[in-house]
Amino acid sequence: MFPRVDRNLVRLLLALLIVVLLAAGHRRATSAGEESLGATIVAVTLSPFQRTLVSSARMLENAWGIVREIRTLYAENQRLRARVEQLEQRVNILNERALENQRLREMLRFRETLPRSGENALAATVIGVKPTNAFNTITVDRGANDGVQAQQMVLTPRGLVGQVRVVTPNTATVLLITDLTSGVGGRVQRTGWRGVVRGTAGPLLEMTYIPKEADVRRGDLVVTSGVGSIFQVKGIVIGKVENVRLDENISVKTATVRPAVDFRRLEEVLVLTQ
């Protein structure tokens, strides 16, 4: 045990002696304005490590800066996206209002063309479409309280829509002319030949019971004839003839008619309350 302690003490003293000598040497060198050998060795040894570490640290710092920048940009991007969505929504609303305004103006102009200046034409908004596939109907936001009654005509500036079928105090269900059960007295505008326009449950109509000698061509405009108990107003556009075929068995012609109204995009209609 003792020799070990002695050895340790010797080493401690040796260490202290080295320190003192080197410190003295350093002091003498620096006092003489020279660089001490020890300092030079340490500086030369240390500098490559320092350079590597500093450049690595800078790279890390830059990488971290990029990450932070990305996070900031991401947050800003999210904020701007939300703002864009908000503005797009506002633009959509404004566009919608502009279109609605346009449609209503058109409807107003059309109303003026109706008999007695359309004083009985009531504007209504479509609030629902057919709930089942059995009937082609729409629901409008006007009902008995507004003077709407069953069997009244419903139309738009583009043409005939249908007739009121069911009325509640505040709404009305309108049977479209495309429904299989619908029948409208029609007239070929160009030649005056009459027939009955029926729904096919599809997008097209059929004008039947046209005499075989009638002059009906593709592109002829079909309007209401005013004959019948429901569609009494004459000259409301129903659609355009797409093709005509002769039914040899009963010696009549049948014309396929494309409705003037696009029923898939119906938004406002007029109900003729008289």
Binding site: V19, A23, R27, G38, A39, V42
Partner: peptide
């Protein structure tokens, strides 16, 4: 000593 040389001062104090 290493620290002292790197620092350029107090070599003895640091070494001791």
């Amino acid at each position: 000593l290493l620290e002292g040389y790197a620092q350029g001062a107090h070599i003895g104090s640091l070494g001791l």
